[in-house]
Write a protein that binds this DNA or RNA. Sequence first.
DNA 1: ATGAAAGCGCTAACAG
DNA 2: CTGTTAGCGCTTTCAT
Lengths: 346, 346
Amino acid sequence: MEDGRRPTIRDIAREAGVSVATVSRVTHDDARVVAATRRRVQDAIDRLGYSPSALGRGLATRRTNTLGIVLPGLGGPYFAELVQGAESVAVERGTAINVLGTHLRPDADGAVRDLAARTDGLIVAGGTVGEDLLVRLSAGTRVVLVAGRSDVVPTVRTDGRAAAIALTKHLVAPRERGGHGYRRLRFLGEPSGSPDTHLRYSGFRQALGDAGLAECGEPLRYGLEVGSGALAARRLHEQHRDGDRLPEALVCANDELAFGMLITLPGLGYRLPDDVAITGFDDQDLAALASPTLTTVHQPVHDLGARAAALALDGTGGRGPVGPPGTDVVLPTELVVRESCGCSAA
Amino acid sequence: MEDGRRPTIRDIAREAGVSVATVSRVTHDDARVVAATRRRVQDAIDRLGYSPSALGRGLATRRTNTLGIVLPGLGGPYFAELVQGAESVAVERGTAINVLGTHLRPDADGAVRDLAARTDGLIVAGGTVGEDLLVRLSAGTRVVLVAGRSDVVPTVRTDGRAAAIALTKHLVAPRERGGHGYRRLRFLGEPSGSPDTHLRYSGFRQALGDAGLAECGEPLRYGLEVGSGALAARRLHEQHRDGDRLPEALVCANDELAFGMLITLPGLGYRLPDDVAITGFDDQDLAALASPTLTTVHQPVHDLGARAAALALDGTGGRGPVGPPGTDVVLPTELVVRESCGCSAA
DNA sequence: ATGAAAGCGCTAACAG
DNA sequence: CTGTTAGCGCTTTCAT
């Protein structure tokens, strides 16, 4: 039985004394096969341990039943959740999932094209591949950009600007309307550093303007990791020592930066959120566990993955067909109010 | 140029006025093609935006350049790290990665066989597929079991028993030898619940015996999640109220259980680790952030993924060839001593 | 209800 | 150095 190679459809056909077409029909539950024949074939299949080659099948049908997901890295808080979202819809369609992290790959573009060559649809995270490559890819596969904007491929994302507005509103709104009434706010992050940060900063300013306020000082221009947050905290401390008034609230471009603040400022003698309120963005798991717990914006990452997968797999966004190319699905974020903005522990 | 379908090797051949063989050679950097021809072909490739079909190529070469990874779920602390480990070796070989979560799949076995049909190698997490299926799979693909034991396929794992011994030793060793000198220890977890738990319990008992001690009470038989830990904490509290002496140290089958203890016992009036020391197992991210920080055993998940990938891809474990089938790579764990065992915050 | 045969896109001898 | 050709494993008309 074992001569090393996997049995092919022809082996089964011979074993069962039928044609390959019939075997093919059996593996597809084609009703036209009479019960007796079907049984003979199924027996042979079981006996030889046959399972159809995805390759051969793919070549013949021009479908791979595979969904590709391109992300910067295969770590971080987003990866698992996004993949799970995609998996949840892939399951229904019997589709496999192929993941690719570009950061580690020396020839990222090549790897992406390679991936495109073996998938029916591609989910690409914003910022991982250039617009030009996106164009080329979309000629062959169905490509969906997640967490980013593009005119050439359909898009699934959240509205970072609107979210930042809602967040900032909570900080500046008068107390009687459930806000904190802060008037001196500052932004932490480099607005020109990433599109996300830019949008968040823009929303921040918008809400400030709407409330008749101005930023109290330039954005603290730092990277996006915990370390940068810690650095910024020290810088803030120095400025304060040199006479600057502390802002009442610091709006951070993401949770990591906020964590950096949370772990550094107390050591410098500041009480949070009394001396300065801190907010994050993204709602990582840690946000609920930090001390004080972090007020932030929740991203529906799972849903992003699911919607993107649905689009990439058959052009359906979930609520009926939506036609690429101009498609732009915007999922709602949620303001998660915890302690670090000054709200008391419930 | 665009008639909908992707260009094939024949389109390029025609466009460049050469044969398909030459095109194939060019896409493979075959040195035998003369520069001028190569340029003509490359031009045609660029012009038409051609990239070889992975399907056709796979069918012809009988290789897919794809590695499959089968896990229970695509979430949890292990997933991302294991995949990253695998990815790190996949990158070098230009291999794609196909992930599959069995928990969501209604027909998990079918999905796994399907995956096997489209990959050169398969990494299977312990406990996701039965031994029988493992056998069938290994006939076709190279299958590696990670975090589990099997006689039919090569294995990459850690030695949970040895790790538990080291951990327990730290708790019972006399102070002058860097230990805590505890004499009343108890285990939390259901030994017969999972192979891992069994091994850890067995190591726990072994170390106890070596020190001339016996368990102070039956294992607290609970599940493996935070909730179970919390439940167990309440149970412990009741037993104590009813007159049982509290153990000096509680060895938990995993970090989650330990977290359950950490968040519940203080509310019941116990001080940790003074009233009772707690240890975990696995070293999840949270372990370093909990309060008190959790003493636990670090699992080299990244390395597990990398070694398994190397084995699955070409039968190499990393240090020279290791021959399946009896292969059993055991990676070292590391005892991470933090505060919850009674060691002071350094 | 079943079979024969023509591909799907590519590679790899084998010729030339 | 380049072209011809026979598959790789499967699906799918079109016959029968």
